[in-house]
Amino acid sequence: MIIFGFRGKVFQLAMVTFVCGNCSNQAAQALRKVVTKFTLFFIPLFPVSTKYLTQCTFCGVENRLTKDQADQVLAMGALQQAPREN
């Protein structure tokens, strides 16, 4: 008997502030990476799919992003976290 399946894991990559496309409020957006792996006997072996999502902390809507869009959001988050000189 062979036991196989899939397991998903969520990684929070950043919190970035910008205007939500759904509620039009400027709010924090959680950037998350969801990786689904094939498992054999409950051991995750290799990734089957990878998704990038943002979730608005104001209204809760999730939007799916491409990898390029997620990289842009990460870069925007790095700019927001950088210390500002006066």
Rank of each mutant, 00 (worst) to 15 (best):
L65K: 05
P44E: 01
Q29W: 05
P44W: 00
T36Y: 03
T17P: 01
R7Y: 05
C23M: 12
K67T: 04
P44I: 01
F38E: 00
P47N: 07
T39W: 00
I43G: 00
N86L: 09
P47W: 06
C20P: 04
T39N: 03
A82S: 08
L40E: 00
Y52M: 04
V34M: 07
V61T: 13
C23L: 11
R32T: 14
A28G: 08
M15E: 15
K37Y: 05
A82G: 10
T57H: 11
K37M: 11
N25R: 15
F58D: 10
R64K: 09
D68V: 11
N22W: 10
K67R: 14
A28M: 11
Q72T: 13
G77T: 08
T39S: 03
L53Q: 09
N25P: 01
R32F: 00
L45I: 13
V16G: 02
P47Y: 02
T66C: 08
V34N: 03
F6L: 13
E62D: 14
V10Y: 12
G60V: 06
G21Q: 14
P83Y: 15
A30T: 10
F38H: 03
P44V: 02
C56G: 10
F41T: 03
L13N: 05
T54A: 13
T66R: 10
R64C: 06
F58L: 13
A14W: 02
L79I: 12
P44C: 02
L40K: 00
F4Q: 04
L31E: 04
A75K: 12
L45H: 00
T36W: 05
